Computed example of a mutant assay.
Amino acid sequence: MDQVNVGLTRAAVWTGDGIDMWDIEIPTLEPEDLLVRVDLATVCGSDLHTVSGRRNGACPSVLGHEAVGHVVAVGDATSIAAVGDRIVWSVTVSCGRCDRCISGFTAKCSAVRKVGHESATSAWTLSGSYARHIVLPHGTAVARVPHSMPDAVAAPAACATATVMAALDAAGALESKRVLIVGAGMLGITAAAAGAERGATVRVLDRDPERQRLCRAFGADEDDGAQTDVAIDFSGSSSAVQAALGRLDIGGRLVLAGSVAPGPPITVDPEAVVRNWLTVTGIHNYEPRHLHQAVAFLRDTGEKYPWESLVEAPVPLAELASVLRPTPSGILRSSVAP
């Protein structure tokens, strides 16, 4: 086993009342575990929901699940990565054995664990990316990242970009299709570019005019209010979902990706679904293939779209609390450099 000397690392721990800095012992790695030095972590909306009380989560915990880093140690028999590899990693950790995993839904594994969502008092203490090191247990998908890709471009691949890849999978073939993206956050803007790269005419709808304008630099056209072949919702707003459903043309497909918290129900007219051949589907998290697709997409479009401009300059780990807040218009991700 290629193992660093056991010592302490530093982590920013969410306590329910704020962020405390903890010194945490680096554990001896189990077979197929990875120890990663976190180079940059971006702040996802779900972390903001946790600290604002909109989302329940383990507490105390090391939050953070969008990050990029270098492997510094590996457990026995590990073949998915080697010391020195620059990687991003999946949000979910699956068992690989249950019926859900076998059927291809590893993100919904019956024993799923999640990066940045586990208790800091559990056996997996270093489970989040707001720390100098993170332990990635067996069952975590990883993807190698080109050294030419900036940290600020690579980190969102682990959540935002990979989730978009899953949403586009659910949307089906997009060549020559009209696509409506609802919500112009990091996911919506990424989906605009990804849809445009797949040959779609993309329009984006957001209540923030600045974010809607920002989408023009990522392949989107101005929304004209017309019917659409595909609508993908990242907003999680029931009223926005209802409106998107109403804009589907014959054979239209609605993909729901933002409805991850309880909200008012929407109305679905079964006759309209039947007569118009409509499809409504949802995705939650993503599969390992989507993580690899995300890295490839960012690599291939790095010179075409200004991805790095969407991420705020990083703050030190000790200042994490200062960026656990909504970002200004035009900046979609805060970041931390542990």
Rank of each mutant, 00 (worst) to 15 (best):
D151V: 01
T50M: 10
R178K: 14
L324P: 03
L324I: 03
I181H: 00
A318K: 12
V6Q: 08
R253S: 08
A131D: 08
S309K: 15
A123S: 11
A200T: 13
V74R: 11
T140R: 04
A226G: 14
E210T: 14
Q212C: 04
G302T: 12
S79D: 13
V142K: 05
R100P: 06
V88L: 09
H70V: 13
E197C: 05
A58E: 05
G219T: 03
G263D: 14
A231T: 11
V182H: 00
G104L: 06
L317D: 13
S103A: 15
S46D: 09
A120C: 15
I19G: 01
A171K: 07
V71F: 13
D33P: 11
T78S: 09
P316N: 05
D23L: 11
A261S: 14
N56Y: 00
R213P: 08
H49R: 13
F234A: 02
S334A: 14
A111S: 13
T42H: 03
T78K: 06
T140N: 04
H70E: 10
T28Q: 14
R333Q: 10
A296C: 06
L320H: 03
L256K: 02
D223N: 14
V115W: 01
V74L: 00
L34Y: 07
L136Q: 03
V336G: 02
T15C: 11
V142G: 05
S238T: 13
A200W: 08
D47W: 01
F234L: 04
M1E: 13
P288F: 03
A200F: 08
S334C: 04
V135N: 07
V13C: 08
A173H: 02
N5L: 09
I189K: 00
L310M: 15
H290Y: 05
G96A: 03
K304I: 09
C95N: 03
T301H: 10
V204R: 10
C98Q: 12
V36D: 04
V88I: 12
D169C: 03
L48R: 09
T140F: 02
A194H: 01
G84T: 04
K108P: 04
N5W: 07
S335G: 04
E118K: 02
A337F: 02
V336C: 04
A120T: 15
L168W: 06
I331H: 12
S103F: 11
T92Y: 14
P316H: 01
G128F: 08
P31I: 00
I102L: 14
S334L: 05
S148I: 10
V230T: 11
A272L: 13
D224E: 14
L126V: 06
Y305R: 03
A184T: 07
T279C: 00
R211G: 13
G96K: 09
A167D: 02
L48E: 06
I189R: 02
E303V: 00
S79A: 14
F234S: 07
S176C: 09
D249Q: 09
G252F: 00
I283P: 05
G139M: 07
G128C: 00
P326S: 09
V4C: 10
A231N: 12
A244P: 15
F105G: 11
V268Y: 03
M165F: 04
E175M: 13
V91H: 14
D20F: 00
R178Y: 09
V36T: 10
L332N: 11
D47M: 01
L324Y: 06
A240L: 06
V315G: 05
G16T: 01
A67Q: 10
V115K: 04
V142I: 14
S103Q: 15
V142M: 13
L291D: 10
V62M: 02
P27W: 01
G251Y: 12
